[in-house]
């Protein structure tokens, strides 16, 4: 038993090293004074300074935030209404609708990207931030719906019945009882959608037009033009931002548990 645990622990630690060493190395070398070499040449902040001064990068961040916020709002509103209507009284053809709702989660992203691009080109909607936002809302809608529905499924339906019994209309019962209990899941789903939107590359790649460069597109073009410590610096910042977002979602989860 003892030997087995030691073996499992070392295998697990090896996995952790595999998962974290690349990120750690990346962050470390964002402070390296040498532009080309992978040997340590001294400490510097100059790559971060270059980042801050990059106007195009700033524009890309703005675009990403804009797309993220708007597509998250759309996906959240639509996703919650999908979850709520699916979790209520069962109806004919429900299984088909449920399957259709999950399809965007399983098909390859490349496929979704080209399909949207084709569609926009054929209906002659110019590729822009608008088309990017529409696409993000489309793949985030099912994600929000799944998260909210899981929470809805765990709620005791007798709560809403109790509210009805105490004289609430169906809408009042939903508004006053179900929605507040659902809020942590709604926020969690929205946060997830926002993160995915900020990180999305493939769908954006196919649906973005000139002047609608988002942060991942900018990162991609930087990476494509070769390794540079500026990308290391940008990566380090992105890693820290995603950690902050995880912290936020954990805080939301804790609140959810507190409400139980």
């Amino acid at each position: 038993m003892r030997g087995r645990r030691a073996w499992l622990l070392s295998a697990s630690l090896a996995d952790l090293v595999f998962l974290y060493a690349p990120i750690a190395v990346l962050m470390l070398f964002s402070f390296n004074a040498s532009r080309l070499s992978a040997t340590w040449q001294g400490f510097t902040f100059q790559w971060y300074r270059l980042l801050i001064e990059d106007v195009a990068l700033l524009a890309a961040v703005q675009n990403s935030l804009l797309v993220g916020v708007i597509s998250t709002i759309i996906a959240t509103v639509l996703g919650v209404s999908a979850a709520v209507s699916l979790e209520r009284v069962p109806f004919r053809g429900q299984r088909v609708v449920e399957g259709a709702l999950l399809l965007p989660l399983v098909i390859p992203e490349v496929m979704m990207g080209v399909a949207l691009m084709l569609f926009f080109v054929l209906i002659k909607l110019p590729l822009s931030l608008v088309t990017v936002t529409i696409g993000h809302a489309a793949f985030n809608l099912p994600i929000v719906a799944v998260i909210v529905r899981a929470r809805l499924h765990k709620l005791d339906p007798r709560l809403e019945e109790a509210a009805r019994d105490l004289g609430a209309t169906p809408w009042q019962a939903f508004r006053r009882v179900t929605l507040p209990l659902l809020m942590p899941a709604v926020l969690g789903g929205a946060l997830m959608a926002f993160t995915i939107s900020l990180d999305d590359f493939i769908v954006t790649f196919f649906t973005a037009g000139p002047g609608s460069t988002t942060l991942p597109l900018k990162v991609y073009s930087m990476v494509k033009s070769g390794v540079s410590p500026v990308i290391n610096a940008l990566s380090a910042i992105l890693v820290l931002v995603s950690m902050a977002l995880i912290g936020l979602s954990l805080a939301l989860q804790r609140e959810r548990e507190g409400q139980k």
Binding site: F91, V97, L103, P142
Partner: peptide, 30 residues
């Protein structure tokens, strides 16, 4: 005990319309 309703609530329409227009139609186009 309530009977199975034949139609979903109207709430299902907006999300289905969005996915229909921006997912299923493009897919069929492909």
């Amino acid at each position: 005990h309530s009977p199975i309703s034949r139609r979903p609530t109207w709430l299902l329409l907006p999300p289905l319309a969005w996915l229909g227009a921006f997912f299923f139609v493009p897919l069929l186009l492909v």
